[in-house]
Every structure is written in C-alpha cells, then in structure tokens.
Design a protein around this nucleic acid. Structure first.
Lengths: 161, 161
DNA sequence: CCCATTTATCTTGATATCAAGACAACTCTC
DNA sequence: GAGAGTTGTCTTGATATCAAGATAAATGGG
C-alpha cells in the first residue's frame, strides 16, 4: 500500500541519500491531509453556501454559547488572523446577515459580534455536514486505531506549544 | 495531558451534545498541526532567505533530478496552484536568480524552468534546515510510535484519493 | 492536408490577506 | 486626577492568489 508521499520520499532519497527522511514521512502526510481536508470541508460547506473563513468565525461564536457574542479581539485570537482581516470578515458576515455588531456595554472602544438567528442556523447546518463528511473519511479506520491516532497526534502537538 | 483541541471539543460538546465528535478529534489536530508546521517551516527557511512558496517550487525542481528542469505545467500539478500563480512565481524566482526559463526544444509553446546553481544551493540548504527542524519536533516520539503514526496517516489518506 | 479540438503558458481583473499605522478609550502610577 | 503607556478596533497600501480569458502551437479525425 503506497501513497503519493512514498513517491515524494523516494524522489528525495534518489537525490539526497545522505539524509534520514523519517520526519518527511510524517509531516508531509500531515500537510497533504490538511490540504485534502480543506477541499472536503469546502465541499461540505458549499451545500450551505458557507465559505471556510465564514465557518471559522461563525463556529467560534457558536462554541462560545450563551448569547453567541465575542469581541473582534477574541475572534482574532481564536481564528489566528490579523485585525484588518477580521474587520473585513465581520463586515462581510454582517452584509450577509449572519452576525451583527453591538457596542460593548463595558468598554466604549469595544464591539461585540453576535450571531443572528440566520447565522446560527447556517453554522449549525454546516457543522453537521462537516462532521458527517469527516465521519465518512474515518469510516475505514477501526475504533481502536482512531483512539491510537488521536493519542499520537496529541503527542505530536506538544513540542509546538 | 490535554491540548487545545480538547478545549475545542469540550466547547462543542457543551453546545452540541447530540453529535459524536470523534472526527473532530482527529481532523482538527491535523489542521492545527499543519498550521503550526507551516510556522516552523517558515522559521527554518528564513535562515536561508527562502519563502514557503519558493521552497515548494524549488524543491519540485530539485527532486526531479537530472538537469533540474520541469515545465510550468508539471510544476502546477506538483504544487497545486493555478497557472497565473505559477507564472508569477517563476517570474519572481527568475528575478532572484534561482531559476531560468528555457524554451522547450520539443514544443514551441512550451517552457522549461531550470534551477540555477544559486537555486540549487538555496534549496539544498533549506531542505537540510527543514529536515533538521522537523527531526527536532519528532524527538519526543519513540521510533516505534513514529512508524505506527506513519502507517495510520497513510491509511487516513486513502479515502481522499 | 485542413479544420476543430486540445494543450501550454501568460494576461487581466477582482479579492482576501497581511503589515503597519491611526485613533480613541481604558488603566495604572504617581 | 494628569500623563504615560496599553489595549481594541479600524484604515490604508501592498501583494499573492485565483478565475476567466487570450494567444499560440500541437494533435487527430476525416
């Protein structure tokens, strides 16, 4: 059972047989999976007319629970984009009617971004479609392998923190 | 041992206890690892003054071996970008002196992009730095776990193909 | 051999993003 | 409570990317 990363590693080995490419075996697969996953997500969301970046923002608000309100600053930290990008995203989500800007009652500089009912419906539908699509992609992997994989990925993440 | 994805899944579970979030446990970690990895790569390459997109193109040429020549079309397929993007990248890499455009002797529409000596030196240095940095990130993971992880990732990739 | 189709590359126009800076309001120290 | 520094959001200008279209050369069926 070979995949495209095997081809890639073979090619590097032909050219650089002096290097141990075990790290490439791991991290190239992580990168490729992430790109493939983005495509799958885009497809799952398209049925709901939602873009990836829209889901990122709406999901952060949805996860917050309560009144589904977060400040732009908090959204910036959750989604890892710059403030200019977030201003632009909030503008466009407002134009689509998925969120609204409210003044922060505790800080007159501040703003609260709040999910509208349409926004909440959209993100809930998109999230269900996402989980369904991802479950499909996991179907071949037995339950034991899944927990093992999660554990290995968790450990792989620690040195980044 | 908890990570940020545990927080994310907890938050979703609070709001959507009706859904089985096992897929999120796997794929959110893949996405985050990929983003963290991009940061680590950017850092490793910066010592050589190389951008991520530059490495993508130069590495494809380096892996090709031989005269280190590929057509723009082949580069497009290797790097998964559009033709407009590739034209622009080749222009900039040419301006930096890392590649040159040659006419394809077998097809007068065609072009061959060829690594210069500077380009080859740059990509070789960057690749070594990359493998070193990645090896560092794998240091905590015992050898047995690495092969197990590679095998699980390989199987995770199959449904995407 | 000719014409329609396909292939290879480049160009154009629009857009999302980022980095840097502006500005207002908050906070903390004295 | 006044001034310095910090924080929160938005604005501006530059850039990399994409989608769609243009152009030119190759290919293949009749």
């Amino acid at each position: 059972m070979r995949d495209e990363v095997d081809e890639l590693v073979d090619a590097w080995n032909r050219e650089r047989s002096d290097l141990d490419l075990t790290p490439v075996e791991v991290f190239s697969r992580i990168s490729r999976l992430s790109r493939l996953l983005d495509l799958a997500r885009r497809k799952a969301f398209s049925q709901y007319g939602i873009e990836l970046w829209e889901f990122d923002v709406l999901a952060a608000l949805r996860r917050a629970g309560g009144g589904y309100e977060l400040s732009p600053g908090k959204l910036i930290r959750e989604t890892l984009v710059t403030s200019g990008t977030m201003t632009n995203r909030i503008d466009r989500l407002t134009a689509r009617g998925f969120v609204e800007r409210l003044p922060d009652p505790h800080d007159r500089r501040g703003v609260l971004v709040k999910l509208t009912l349409e926004g909440r419906a959209a993100v809930d539908g998109a999230f269900e479609a996402l989980v369904d699509a991802e479950r499909e992609l996991l179907a071949e992997l037995p339950t034991g392998d899944r927990t093992q994989l999660v554990e290995l990925l968790r450990r792989l993440m620690t040195p980044f923190a």
